[in-house]
Amino acid sequence: MKKIASYPDSLTEKHFHYCPGCTHGTVHRLIAEIMDELDIREETIGVAPVGCAVLAYEYFDCDMHEASHGRAPAVATGIKRVHPDKVVFTYQGDGDLASIGTAEIVHAANRGENITTVFINNAIYGMTGGQMAPTTLEGQKTTTSPYGRNLKEAGNPIKMTEMLSALDGPSYIARVSVHTPKHIRKAKKALKKAFQRQLDGRGFTLIEVLSTCPTNWGITPKDALNWLEEYMMPVYPLGDLKDIEEVE
């Protein structure tokens, strides 16, 4: 009988601590599968963020480095400059990347730092208990926007991926989602392309992944998948935002 799926070598045996219905686990698995397929587990150093994925170093079976909140691209820069022949990725949430770490991500991208960033956008702070994120939608209720996000007071949902696409440094930037099997397959394709770009030395790559947070959104996992499609996708449209063959 032909084996069509197995547990990725690049994931440890550790059980995820993520809530039911959270899509972090799906994205972790995709990254692990890609490390297996590209045979880079022993060549890869991952940088874990501060946020729900703070314990990512317990799940990825490759060398892992902690970063303080938002600074993963700076830490990854330090690692990559010492080991330019290794694969370095950061795994960051929306609070980490789009709020406290805006300077670090912008400048790492602008330098064309040859690293890959996986950006999980679930429109809310998860780890700290459901506060408003920079990517929180208009009218979305959180513990710090109890009446719904008011754009006049709290500004607009920030579109990091579009912003970063305007820079000259990045080689490949895309937005994907993981709320259906079809979208998961597309997400994996984009992630793999990003890692391959890094292996080819073509500079900065970033994949934004629209994700769910049923616990802090206060809905069931199934409803969360629908909510993502109905409310997030119109604000954060999917697709390749930047794709250039060569970075000068």
Binding site: A74, T77, G78, R81, H107
Partner: peptide
């Protein structure tokens, strides 16, 4: 060697964190 002018002191110290963690 590598000289890198960081975007901020905060970033610089975190680049040091990464480079130190990588054994340099």
């Amino acid at each position: 060697g590598v000289f890198l002018q960081a975007e901020s002191e905060v970033a610089a110290s975190n680049m040091v964190y990464g480079a130190a963690g990588s054994g340099a």
